[in-house]
Nucleic acid binder design. Sequence first.
DNA 1: TTGCGTCGGTGCGTTACCGTACACAGCATT
DNA 2: AATGCTGTGTACGGTAACGCACCGACGCAA
Lengths: 241, 241
Amino acid sequence: MNDTLRPTNNLLATLLYEDRKLVLDCCEEVQLIFSDTLCEQGKPVKHAYFPLDSFASLAMSVPGHASIEIGLVGNEGMLGFQLILGVATSPLQAQVQGAGVALRIEAKQLEHVLQQSQTLQYGLNRYVYVFMCQLTQTAVCSRLHKIEARLARWLLITQDRAHSHQFHLTHEFLAYMLGVRRAGVSTAAGLLQQQKLIRYRRGDITILDRHGLEAVACSCYATVKKLYEETLNPNPEKTPQ
Amino acid sequence: MNDTLRPTNNLLATLLYEDRKLVLDCCEEVQLIFSDTLCEQGKPVKHAYFPLDSFASLAMSVPGHASIEIGLVGNEGMLGFQLILGVATSPLQAQVQGAGVALRIEAKQLEHVLQQSQTLQYGLNRYVYVFMCQLTQTAVCSRLHKIEARLARWLLITQDRAHSHQFHLTHEFLAYMLGVRRAGVSTAAGLLQQQKLIRYRRGDITILDRHGLEAVACSCYATVKKLYEETLNPNPEKTPQ
DNA sequence: TTGCGTCGGTGCGTTACCGTACACAGCATT
DNA sequence: AATGCTGTGTACGGTAACGCACCGACGCAA
């Protein structure tokens, strides 16, 4: 497969060649449609996804409350971390936020290839670890930081996943993900727009000043980004252990 | 080893007999001292612990802010989940909250026995999964629920780990764990005491009415408890898959 | 008995966000 | 041109928690 001529999945890229091949041979390419639900809270999961140019949001809902952000999964990771741990039930809800292509592997087949290679197991376990840290950081963030900072952070990670300075996100959706009121998002977004960091019109958001946005966002953005870079080294051939 | 005459670790109890033996043979018994720090954020980890009658708190601190609760680990689980994933750095801070005995295994040895048994790997992976769900639930909880409910929840999980209706916890410490002001805890604790659910005096807390406390606590307590019961089945011989 | 450190109760002004509600603008459909 | 839906701006009163600060009560030790 010629990876250089098409978008790649960075998690797969961290794997040893043999392990990557093992996984890729079981994968099929699928087109993800915007707003499709890939898995629901508490329901069984049939596939794991390695997004290429697509990405999906993860959220948890609590009875009697709004839901809350957990994170976004794009081509830096994998959707369905539970399968790496041998659990076939989804604890979260996943919804496609950016249409595009993803590689898909059946749960059974993933389980099978995991049993065939210790190093694959190890490589994907590292992802589970990073994902867990990200989860914790997001948790802390939503507890400590104010809406404006969290909104800025969310826009940044969306831009990272979308690989574009422009994307579609309504205040309504952002409110849902951040677990706040729609009105709260409007106010915060208004502030960011006043500072000429972003521009939006009926759901179409354009990032005007990424650096400015990073300054407004809390340190959580940088922390998680660094974690991914440090832990998921994209040159495993050089550091196979 | 005669497990029936002494406190047991429930996670170890979920393992197959052979796997349990594999782990136990590498374990040494250690006495954990109250307020000892078992691992610090970002520092390497040398051991994993399986508490018997001891328990420890996990917290994450963010520069410029108070720290925040992640959870408590007692005889229902294991301290050092990262080691199961092959990562030897601690993302969190762990401090002994209940003095007592724990079984301790060296990181290297755990890695070694994990390589020897797929079923052990699988059994501990399930714990990682449950722990992750708990993490998420705690995250959501600290975002959505008010201090009184979260305090009630914390007291309940402490009671579960301490296996006693009485334990030592100052408002100061509770504030630290819940990520709120000490004064906020005092007010909330005062309310619980007014309702005759608890009694406290200079750090000594007595649970008077567990059911009442469960009613005040948010649903998160019940959710996580159920998750542990369902996922970590203590009779693996009957359901070895 | 005095002193000191720990622990907890309380008050005050401030802030971030909530629930609710209404108004309006852009866009598509009839 | 009229209608209706979606997306956004804004306002109002209410509240949970904040930072800060001070004081009192208890318990240990000199």
